[in-house]
Each structure stands twice: as C-alpha cells, then as structure tokens.
Simulated assay, not measured.
Amino acid sequence: MSTKRPANTFRNGPPQPRPKATLGSTKALPKTVSSRVKSSSRWGWVRQYMRDRPLVERIYRVTLKVVLWLFLSSIGAVIVLKYVPVWVTPLIVSRWVDTFGTDESSHVYKKWRSYDTISKEVALAVVASEDQDFPTHWGFDFDEIKDAMKENETRKLPRGASTISQQVAKNVFLWNGRSYIRKGLEVYFTALIELVWGKKRILEVYLNVAETGPMTFGVEAASQRYYGHSAESLSRNEAARMAAVLPNPRLFSISNPSNYVQRRTRQIAKQMRYLGGQKYIRNL
C-alpha cells in the first residue's frame, strides 16, 4: 500500500497572476465616499495654493475675521437697541450733512418717547397706511412684494413693498440707496429684529425714527412742532394726517396739507375704523 501523499497543487503549483485593477473598479466606491475624496482633495489644493502665496492667505484670514466681527457686532447692536433708545440713525446724519452749504436750518427736531406714552391712534394710523399685516407677518409681506413686482413692470416710478419692519431695519442700521448688497443686509436685519425685538419694540422704534417733516424725526417731535402738543394726545384725524405724509415727508406737509394729503388722511381714517380701531394693535 502506497503512503505517498497527493501533491498540494494549491501550495506547490505555479503562482496565479493577481487581477489587475481597472478604471472601472473605482465605480464600485459609494458616491458619498467619492465626493468626500474629491472635496478633500480640492480643499487640500486650496490650502496649498494659499500656503504658496502668503499675501493671499493673509487677505483671506483678515477677511474672515472682519466678516465674523461684523456678524457678532450686528447681533450685539440689535440686542442693545432692544432696550436703549435709538437717538441717531444714518438717515438723520445724512439729512444733517445735506444742510451744509445751504440756507436750510441744520437743527434736528427729535425727541424719544416710549410706546406707552404715545397715542395709540398714531400707532394704528401708521399700521393702517403702511403695513396692515404688521401684527401677523414675520417681517415680509410676500403678497405685496409680488403685486409690486407686477406693477413695476409698467410703472415709471417703482412702487415699494417694504413693511414697517423693513423700514426700521433700513433706517436704523443701513444707508439710503438701491443695491443688492443693501437689500440683502436689509433682509438680514429685518429677520434679526423680528426675532430679537418683537412687534411692539419695532413699532416703538418706527414711531421715534421715521422722518415726519424737514429735519423732523419721530411722532413726538412732529406733534410738538406742527400741532403744538405731545404725541400722547394725538386725535385720530391728526394721527391720520401725520401718517399721510410718511411716503414723502419732505414734499408733503402736516401743517399745510395739500388736497392729496387731505384725501389720503380721510382714506387712512376710514381704514383705521375698518380695522376695528385700537384693539387691532392691542396685543403686539
């Protein structure tokens, strides 16, 4: 009987060639893994590019710090101004600078009054004339924006659709002018004050910083200058006339109202009654 073992062909046989990698083998990798590899390689290329160019890297770091500082300071400013009266705005400074070299008086008429000491008739009047959905929207009236965009296709002078919140954001934090940068910042600050301030504070600031006449800002200064008494005792007709000039307070006059201002005053007073009076803004 033979005791010879069978040859181990697996161990002693000729070496088998290894399968060669093909281009199609990378397709077996999951898409997420492939995208991560690509993104990491791109980011590595960017980092290497900046390392090879110290000036570019320095500019990038400075820009990043400036953007971060502006972001944090904007949030800090909004938080502070939730509690502190807004004494000066870019619009006030701009109007004051415009008086240089002219015969116009450079005196600024402005006096801060808390919301509780201002007649609710004027608060209701500006809501009725400027932004009737103010108590319910989140800073933007998209229906009004759509209507304005359609109308502006045929109008020579564009019609705005800014809410009271947007006007406050623009007047307090930004400059005059039309640009995509300013509009983008307006959207940012509008959302921020809606979140941090709330409706009552936004309306309080609006009533104190809105331009109500030549070098006149806020309803208290306008009431004392044109009516001879405090804004605490404004009547419905006086409040409606004050709101009627807000679209262009440098052209329209509270003390000497034109036919247009008188007609618009009656319309606003009618809208105030239609909204149900002061109870419309009672729960801001």
Rank of each mutant, 00 (worst) to 15 (best):
E194F: 09
E204L: 12
A161T: 01
M149F: 00
A191Y: 15
K110I: 07
Q271M: 02
R58D: 01
W197T: 06
L124K: 09
T63E: 12
N248A: 09
A240E: 08
G13P: 13
R263Y: 02
V126N: 08
H229N: 02
S105A: 12
Y60T: 09
K270E: 05
A125F: 07
P6M: 11
A244G: 07
T32R: 15
E130S: 10
W112T: 14
V56H: 03
A243E: 02
P90R: 06
W45Q: 11
S253D: 04
R241A: 05
L207G: 14
T216N: 12
W175P: 08
A125D: 08
R266C: 03
K150C: 00
V66S: 12
P135L: 07
G139V: 03
K120I: 07
G44A: 11
N237C: 03
V245P: 06
E186C: 14
V62D: 14
V84I: 08
D116W: 15
I181L: 14
T117Q: 13
R18S: 12
R201G: 13
Y227E: 00
A210W: 06
G213L: 07
K146Q: 04
A191R: 15
Y109K: 12
K199P: 06
R159V: 03
F252H: 11
V97F: 04
Q224W: 00
V196L: 15
K82T: 03
T26I: 13
V84F: 03
K270V: 00
V67I: 11
G198N: 14
K111N: 10
S94V: 06
R266Q: 09
F252W: 09
K200T: 12
I164Y: 00
I281L: 05
P6I: 12
S41K: 05
K170Y: 05
F173P: 03
G76F: 06
S94G: 06
A77T: 11
P214N: 09
I202V: 15
D133H: 08
K20R: 15
R241H: 05
S223D: 00
Y227S: 00
M215Q: 13
A191G: 15
A221R: 02
Q48G: 13
R182H: 13
S25H: 07
M1S: 11
L192N: 02
K110L: 08
S258V: 00
K65G: 06
F134Q: 06
F252T: 01
K27I: 07
V67C: 05
F10M: 11
S34Q: 14
G184I: 12
V78R: 04
K199H: 15
G13W: 11
W175V: 09
T9A: 12
Y227I: 04
T89W: 06
T117E: 14
G218S: 08
